[in-house]
Computed example of a mutant assay.
Amino acid sequence: MSFYISLSGLKASQTDLSTISNNVANVSSTAFKKSKAQFGDIFAAAPMQTTSQVAGQGVRVQGVAQQFTQGTLETTDKTLDLAITGEGYFTVKGEDGNISYTRNGAFAVDDDRYAVDTTGARIQVFAVDPTTGATTVDPTGATPADLTDLQIPNTFDGTATGAQLTSVGVDKKGMVSAVYADGSTVYLGQVAMASFNSQEGLRQEGDAHWTSTVASGSPILGTANQGMFGAVNSGMLERSNVDITDELVNLIAAQRNFQANSKAIEAANTLTTTIVNLRT
């Protein structure tokens, strides 16, 4: 039995090492959220058996949970680089039409003048009145179907003869505005923020993107700088929340745990060999 107990310990240590290695590998990934392996002991006994005389039967992996703590903010001075301070997520729509959620705010403008992230997904915004900035859709109770793509025209009226675009701004509330050469200001949309009842229930999609599941609950949409959605910071990006010092310490501990289980298997093997040799 000791062989199988130590074997479960080796497998658990291997999972722990893999999780820590993934954290270390993504220390420079924008908006990456570190993970932590969670373990539980295995114990089984007959209904009438005295449990004080029964040893455990090893360890098992209960799950690998992401830690959605705030990462530090890095200044980039690029207007469409957006960082969230809070628990909100940007809502983006991929080329296949699927909605996902991200905290990676490294947005840029594509050939069609749509604001897209590093995967080519378009950021979603609430439609607003171009002159007043008032939202035309009530954010309360809104769904992803109520959102629209953010497009930044090169000219004031979208024609070749219109006033040329001079600058774009994004405020703390996620309101995107464009200033044109003739001095006119046009509001283009307000960034749609999403939050979830259970962040741990989100499904990872890679590239710091997540999709909602039954466990996470349906997305709660709203605007930035309100409640749990957090504020939008233009000209900044959220760094990974991995602390390399903590991860290296955890790596040493996981390695020692692996070695200890290996020694336990070696000891069990030596004991078994000794018993077998008694007959010879």
Rank of each mutant, 00 (worst) to 15 (best):
70 Q>A: 06
139 P>W: 02
32 F>W: 12
217 G>S: 11
69 T>H: 09
16 D>K: 10
254 A>C: 10
231 A>N: 06
114 Y>V: 01
22 N>S: 09
22 N>G: 09
189 G>A: 03
39 F>E: 12
252 I>C: 13
231 A>C: 04
36 K>S: 15
84 I>N: 01
84 I>G: 01
244 I>V: 14
111 D>S: 14
272 T>V: 11
110 D>F: 02
40 G>H: 05
38 Q>Y: 03
182 D>A: 04
39 F>L: 06
213 T>W: 02
219 P>E: 04
41 D>L: 14
141 G>M: 08
41 D>H: 12
276 V>Q: 15
260 A>F: 15
164 Q>E: 11
3 F>N: 10
214 V>I: 14
142 A>H: 04
86 G>P: 09
86 G>H: 01
183 G>M: 13
10 L>A: 08
181 A>W: 03
221 L>C: 06
143 T>I: 12
61 V>A: 00
86 G>K: 15
61 V>N: 07
111 D>P: 00
12 A>V: 05
103 R>C: 04
30 T>R: 00
217 G>C: 05
200 E>N: 08
261 N>C: 09
213 T>H: 00
62 Q>Y: 02
192 A>C: 15
224 A>I: 12
51 T>N: 13
15 T>K: 04
255 Q>P: 09
80 L>K: 04
227 G>V: 10
161 T>K: 06
87 E>A: 10
132 T>H: 02
162 G>Y: 03
228 M>F: 14
228 M>V: 12
279 R>Q: 14
185 T>R: 06
221 L>Y: 13
170 V>Y: 01
253 A>K: 08
274 T>K: 15
26 N>F: 09
270 T>S: 15
117 D>T: 12
29 S>C: 04
267 A>Y: 09
157 D>R: 02
270 T>I: 11
271 L>A: 05
218 S>T: 11
128 V>E: 07
47 P>N: 10
91 T>Q: 15
127 A>V: 09
72 T>W: 00
21 S>I: 10
244 I>L: 10
63 G>V: 14
162 G>N: 01
170 V>T: 05
261 N>Q: 15
161 T>R: 07
165 L>P: 13
70 Q>E: 13
140 T>G: 06
107 F>K: 04
49 Q>D: 02
82 L>T: 08
188 L>F: 00
83 A>L: 09
233 N>D: 15
123 I>V: 15
4 Y>D: 03
155 T>C: 07
10 L>S: 06
234 S>P: 02
139 P>G: 05
110 D>T: 11
150 L>N: 00
26 N>V: 13
50 T>A: 05
278 L>I: 13
89 Y>R: 02
80 L>Q: 10
180 Y>H: 07
123 I>Q: 05
178 A>W: 03
254 A>M: 11
85 T>N: 08
